[in-house]
Structure formats: C-alpha cells, structure tokens
C-alpha cells in the first residue's frame, strides 16, 4: 500500500511537477485545481496527506484547510502548505486554519518527500 497524496494547486506546472515527483517516490497522487476542487476530491476518497497551495481562485488554501478540518474533524489528515509565501503572519494563519506543515517553494523534490514522510501516518510502504 502506498501513501495516497492529494495535491491542490492552481498552476498546472506545479501540479505536473508535484505529480511526477510523488509518482517517482511511489506515492499515489490525486490532483485538484483549487480549494473547491480539492474538497470535491476529498468527497471521493480521503488521502493520507494533503499538499496545498495558498493563492488559488475560488477557494484559497486557508479556506480549503479550514474546510477540511471542519468537514473531516474525526480524521487525521496532515496538510502541508506548499507556497512561495514565507511571511510569518501567513504561516500563522495557515497554522490557525489547521495546516500541519509549511514548505516554501521553489519546488524541491527531496524536500517535499521528506516533509511528507515526516507527517504521514505510515499506511504500509513507508
């Protein structure tokens, strides 16, 4: 059983990069284009870890995290924020919303995987 990751990012390029990196690492990847899309995907199947961007149309990262925590309050789903933002107040807002961790872009494959492994509840493969 491999870890199942949901990556939410409005940039196709980032989705591609995340998907490829996580695929290589042996994770199962599901992708969503924004917060709303992310919530829709969660309704289908729950991932082990969620990776989300902050700046997104319709429902941004903060709103998405808050909703996940509200809707799935009885689940453990680590949520990693992957963003170019590094301002402390934004980090605090994300933490307030319920983010598990914070990874600052530029995109780095190793960094991302290491972070996932640090927060994921092992479901098997790891």
């Amino acid at each position: 059983m491999s870890l199942k990751i949901l990556a939410v990012d409005d940039s196709r390029t980032m989705r591609n990069l995340i998907s490829a990196a996580l695929g290589r690492a042996g994770f199962e990847v599901d992708l969503a284009e924004d917060g709303e899309d992310g919530l829709r995907r969660l309704a289908d199947a729950l991932p082990d870890v969620i990776i989300t961007d902050i700046n997104m149309p319709r429902l941004d990262g903060f709103g998405f995290i808050e909703n996940v925590r509200k809707l799935y309050r009885d689940r453990i789903m680590p949520i990693l924020v992957l963003t170019t933002e590094s301002a402390p107040d934004l980090k605090a807002r994300a933490r307030e919303a319920g983010a598990t961790g914070w990874i600052v872009k530029p995109f780095d494959e190793e960094k991302l995987i290491w972070a996932i492994e640090r927060v994921a509840i092992p479901g098997g493969g790891t």
Binding site: M1, L3, S19
Partner: peptide, 24 residues
C-alpha cells in the same frame, strides 16, 4: 486523544492504481 481516529484512518486507507492525472 487521537488514537481512535488514527486507527480508523489507517485502516481505511486503500490504494493501488497509477496516480491520477490533472483534471483538465
């Protein structure tokens, strides 16, 4: 405080199949 949930989430985990592509 978290044990019950964890058990549940861990056992519910199902996987298999290739990564799903972006919805475009």
């Amino acid at each position: 405080a978290q044990t019950a949930e964890k058990t549940e989430s861990a056992t519910e985990k199902t996987s298999g199949g290739p990564p799903r592509g972006a919805a475009t």
